[in-house]
Design a protein around this nucleic acid. Structure first.
Lengths: 346, 346
DNA sequence: TAAGCTTGCTGGAACGTTCCAGCAAGGAGC
DNA sequence: GCTCCTTGCTGGAACGTTCCAGCAAGCTTA
């Protein structure tokens, strides 16, 4: 009876079940501990045995069971990604997500997409080892939950709210990029630029506002700042721009912070009979489909979202591995993509 | 010694470790099996004890350990999402992803983002219970790997390649939506429409091509079909449209299949001195930021990506639960968003 | 030669859950 | 009174991995 039962289960193991560490160990004639050490890299194993076991594992098609490993190591092998769900900028975030997922995969980490409210239950800690929170906004109630979930958090851009501090952050030098953009516009002949920017609820928008102020003082060129919603629709932006054109006689350049708002600016220019690129210079603080796809194409600051995502994932991965101390803030490089919309005043 | 050791571990359990099923059971004065049954819903437990245990669990803040559950149940509690990484259409896919992640969460499933090449290793089956493959293209080498990974697969749109068949699919009636779009254009005065569409490598594009053919025959109106890349850039589309305008004297409407290509069509119209909406009607087969954000706004077929994602996740979830038999194909509804770009010939 | 160190390996005990066999207690049917 | 069934609960054994203590064998040192 014992024998029959053992034989049956062994047969099933061969036919249907997936191959486990014990199968590998048995086939290689070692104990499971040695097999584990040989494949995992830790522990003391002779080079010869290690290679033999790795060969056997490859031959049998051994894949470690993620759940068992997680249980034993009490780490899940996955990180979470939390994105703001703004209507525009989605292609930016998608590129960022792709970058993060690729980088995570290089370290053997899965990336799970977090929906708003995921963390509020509290079970987050048993499902991911850490979380990436991108562009955290102060009035998003999920953000404090994520920060308090008990796992390391890396933010993309700083979080301006209080509470538990994140373990790390990757930030863009938005002040420098806006200054570069304004320098570029001035060089192309702009003397009366305007900036369309969301209110200071996010680190990004807040930084842009002060940067515009600093630049204006330094250069002695007044920059008109006008507040638009974070996820501004083209219609809203068009109205805002038309308003500016009507109100400021010599307006010659418009910088719009959200990339999705670009079409609205262009439409207002067309309506007012201004030729984009010469009569009115137009630029955006975030590059994306809207800036690249419009006509004429719009000069924009390229935040290189895929690399941004990679950088965030890399930092979190290092924090999890313990190779980097908590509290780091890393800088992410940007680039200025000059296009026809700032060709220059004729 | 035994006692001291036990006390020590119990103390640590209280101070640092998270609360386990055993903690709940002990606090409620029952065995772990009963606690498991009470919380899991299965097994035989009296209503009184069940409530008591649930109260205790809530009070202690018990969260089941995902890894342990996965290990025991040999299911991971997560599904994978594989998206094509085309430059345009990203906001469409992002909305779809958000829909899928929300629906998955309703069933307690995590959604992990799959990068191209994730499946080739073969370890996919131990990490997700099933996979969503959206807009599978025949020449994507990852798709056969995903289909052969040994877990249920639901595709968004059909997969035209061979090999292992998916367990389910959610499809749009692209033929019907294009016919509706062409009907709309004809009603607004179009007599010589053109269709910009990718080659027949995807189910979506193939369906559009035949639908245009069928519609033309039925209505007696010839539709000019022109092939553009799947992820057509605005520049490519502009060139293609300019070409059409030059080559076809009475051209009065352009339908462009990929949404990201919309700005190119509009630019070509402007260049040719045609007024979009009257001189040239313009429409797209996929609604998105490009169609909504352009000026004038462009009439498009709304595939309702978030709901599409929800539908895919729902189907996969049912397949995993066994409440739906494999092989199902479900239909997803679309809507026509009429905008200024098809106002009508004056 | 005895003690101590290093190397290479082993066996067992976790990790937290679910599933299964089983067992008292009580009721029904003969 | 005996069997049989149901209800409500229990204890132990999985699931596949990693970690830890430990143990021979060989080498060094005194």
């Amino acid at each position: 009876m014992e024998g029959r039962c053992g034989a049956a289960s062994r047969l099933r193991a061969v036919t249907s079940r997936s191959v486990t560490l014990i199968d590998v160990a048995r086939a290689a004639g070692v104990s499971k501990s040695t097999a584990s050490n040989a494949l995992g890299g830790s522990g003391r194993v002779s080079e010869a045995t290690r290679e033999r076991i790795q060969d056997v594992a490859r031959e049998l098609g051994y894949r470690p069971n993620t759940a068992a490993r997680s249980l034993r190591r009490s780490s899940t092998g996955a990180i979470g990604l939390y994105l703001p769900r703004t209507g525009t900028r989605l292609d930016y975030y998608m590129n960022l997500a792709f970058g993060a997922v690729e980088r995570a995969r290089e370290d053997g980490l899965d990336l799970v997409l977090l929906a708003p409210g995921t963390a509020s239950g509290g079970g987050l800690a048993s499902r991911v080892d850490g979380v990436l929170v991108i562009d955290p906004e102060v009035d998003d109630p999920s953000v404090p939950d994520l920060l308090g979930a008990g796992v390391p958090v890396v933010t993309g851009e700083r979080y301006l709210g209080g509470g538990v501090a994140p373990s790390g952050a990757v930030v863009c030098d938005n002040a420098a990029s806006l200054a570069a953009l304004l320098d570029h516009l001035a060089e192309r002949g702009a003397r009366r630029p305007a900036l369309l920017v969301p209110g200071p609820g996010s680190d990004w928008a807040a930084a842009l506002r002060t940067a515009a102020d600093v630049w204006s003082r330094r250069e002695g060129i007044e920059t008109v700042v006008r507040t638009v919603p974070f996820a501004a629709t083209p219609a809203e932006t068009e109205a805002a721009t038309a308003d500016l054109i009507a109100g400021i006689p010599k307006l010659d350049a418009v910088v719009c912070a959200p990339d999705g708002a670009v079409p609205g600016v262009l439409a207002a220019a067309v309506h007012a009979g201004l030729r984009t690129g010469t009569g009115l210079l137009v630029a955006a603080c975030v590059d994306g489909a809207a800036a690249r796809g419009s006509s004429p194409q719009v000069t924009a600051v390229d935040l290189r979202p895929a690399e941004y995502g990679r950088a965030c994932a890399a930092l979190l991965s290092e924090l999890l591995a313990g190779t980097t101390e908590p509290g780091v803030v890393r800088r992410h490089d940007w680039a200025l993509n000059v296009r026809d919309s700032t060709a220059g005043r004729s």
